[in-house]
Design a protein around this nucleic acid. Structure first.
Lengths: 236, 236
DNA sequence: TGGGCATACTAACACAGGTTGGCGCGCGCT
DNA sequence: AGCGCGCGCCAACCTGTGTTAGTATGCCCA
């Protein structure tokens, strides 16, 4: 079974077998297991390493003094936390494991070595970063201007494509290991309303969700409901 | 009067006089004037150039088929649209002028030339980009979890710092040349509610806003009201 | 095998913010 | 000078989503 990071990179650029071996090597060193609901990187730290998610879901989040939490990004298997952390900066947010997570810890030097003289790898990392930024923009638009049901539908469509590219979707069925409060914090709503909205998507025949797996029963319908246009995920 | 781009870069890194001259040179070629409410870069294009905002305000926005508009970023004088556009990609959004805008058109080659052998400039561009990403994250958190008044207060605090760094704030008074519908689209609300909230901030003695200039009457109070922590804007 | 706990799910009610529509001002036209 | 119109502003009403407070369900661990 191939590693999701390499799969994703191959979406962007053609890799030689040697490129592939190098990227795969990054994912095989310094493996760490982090229990669910625990921080991978706390707020206010100045991280030296970056992390490659190999298994499980994590998130970037901000927490307000009064306890409100905003999830500003979801990190899926194959996602690299910050390819360019070596520009030392203090974290303005935290990275937390939503489920038990397996990560590879990577040093800036290892990234530098992998990139040096390998334009395909560098190009792939760039495209990853552009895609991440596009996702940020789409989230701002979503929380700002989409209704509850549109937001949820849109998120499911986004996750479907992202997981498919990492080789983790089974056709139109995908893992969905997060709780409703997690979805609420990612979409700027309450878990109660997420529940209502899930019900609406279900009774509308668009999705089925049980035992942490989501099945999209009507992909075109779901995309239409969420005003989802996959173009923003294509950097090519 | 110095150019806002150079001022901003000097916030991040120390520049030699020569560095400064090179950056300043970028801002003096291929000047274009764009009338207010017109696109600088339309959606779905594959831009070759990037733009440096010299005067006026612009925004990145997404428009839905039914007309809803989401402003996902504000571009102020001194802001560079996409330092790394040369990774050719199709625009997933548009860039529009909110006011009449003066820009310098810059080619990828010019950026490459400016960076080559000048680590300070490269470092500065990187830090600019990290700051931009941090602002994106903060916007997601804002629209997701801050109340109307908190959002508006937070935005004003953000703009205050950003404009100050570009040398465009007069103490605690800053230009605010956008309309209430513009603010609404940036904050995910309606212009009517922006108006209500402005009134609340005004009667609370936190701000004064007239003839397109904002005066922050109580900076600490406004920051508290908006849960504003300037740390996220500091990449150092 | 049962008890505790996290999560899903629901109902009733509350309210922040959206919608509609209208008034007036100021500015740029002609 | 007068006209149109974008914009600020406001009031009345409406509704999508939040809040509160449960019950139900399934899983882990003793």
């Amino acid at each position: 079974m191939e590693n999701p990071f390499v799969r994703k990179m191959e979406r962007h650029v053609g890799l030689t077998p040697e490129d592939r071996a190098i990227l795969d090597g990054l994912a095989r060193q310094h493996i760490r297991h982090i229990p669910g609901r625990q921080d991978i990187e706390g707020p206010h730290t100045e991280p030296y390493h970056t992390h490659l998610i190999l298994d499980g879901w994590a998130c970037r989040y901000k927490q307000f003094p009064d306890g409100r939490r905003a999830i500003v990004a979801l990190l899926l298997p194959g996602d690299l936390c910050d390819p360019f952390v070596y520009r030392r900066a203090r974290m303005d947010h935290a990275i937390g494991a939503l489920t038990p997570v397996t990560v590879a810890r990577i040093t800036p030097e290892q990234i530098g070595d992998a990139v040096r003289g390998r334009p395909a790898i560098e190009e792939g990392l760039w495209r990853e970063m552009l895609t991440t930024t596009a996702i940020h923009r789409e989230w701002i638009a979503s929380v700002g201007r989409r209704s509850a049901i549109e937001r949820l539908a849109h998120l499911f469509c986004e996750l479907h494509l992202r997981l498919a590219w990492a080789g983790l979707a089974d056709g139109t069925t995908l893992p969905m290991p997060v709780t409703q409060p997690d979805l609420a914090d990612a979409l700027g709503q309450t878990s109660v309303h997420i529940n209502r909205t899930l019900k609406e998507l279900r009774t509308g025949g668009l999705i089925a969700l049980r035992s942490r797996r989501l099945t999209i029963r009507d992909l075109d319908g779901l995309r239409e409901r969420g005003l989802f246009d996959p173009a923003y995920l294509q950097t090519a």
